[in-house]
């Protein structure tokens, strides 16, 4: 539960990373993927996922394709060219942030 807040801020980065790895995904698939990858530690909430996806779409980082699957339509998202660059930028940013946090938490030296 306490993870949720920290997670929310990085939602867009996680979506971009998922799309980088899987090329083409739909919303429900992303929710399931994150659940599996984190052994159900983290849950993407539906109410946050779609706004994040739509924002990325309107910024031009992801594009949409609608395909007929069985008896219904499915909206697939994939990275655009600028989305690919954006993904590596954001991943870099995130790992630097995580490194800093790691340092901060594990540091044993006291400041005089």
């Amino acid at each position: 539960m306490s993870n949720q807040k920290l997670f929310k801020g990085s939602l867009q980065t996680i979506i971009l990373k998922l799309l980088e790895r899987n090329a083409k995904m739909y919303g429900y698939e992303m929710v399931q993927h994150v659940k599996q990858l984190t052994n159900e530690e983290l849950n993407i909430t539906e109410g946050a996922l779609y706004p994040a996806l739509h924002k990325l779409e309107s910024e031009g980082f992801v594009e949409v394709e609608v395909l007929k699957v069985g008896n219904r339509m499915r909206k697939y998202y994939s990275l655009t060219k600028s989305g690919v660059t954006e993904t590596s930028d954001r991943i870099g940013e995130m790992s630097r942030f995580l490194e800093t946090m790691e340092q901060l938490i594990t540091s044993k030296t006291k400041l005089a």
Binding site: T45, E46, G47, Y50, P51, H54, S58
Partner: peptide, 22 residues
């Protein structure tokens, strides 16, 4: 229920705002 207390309306409003801004 998984869509939270705002249900679908939050999704619609946020998307409207994103497109309007663009």
């Amino acid at each position: 229920k998984k869509f939270g207390i705002y249900g679908f309306s939050d999704i619609v409003t946020k998307k409207e705002n994103a497109v309007t801004y663009e």
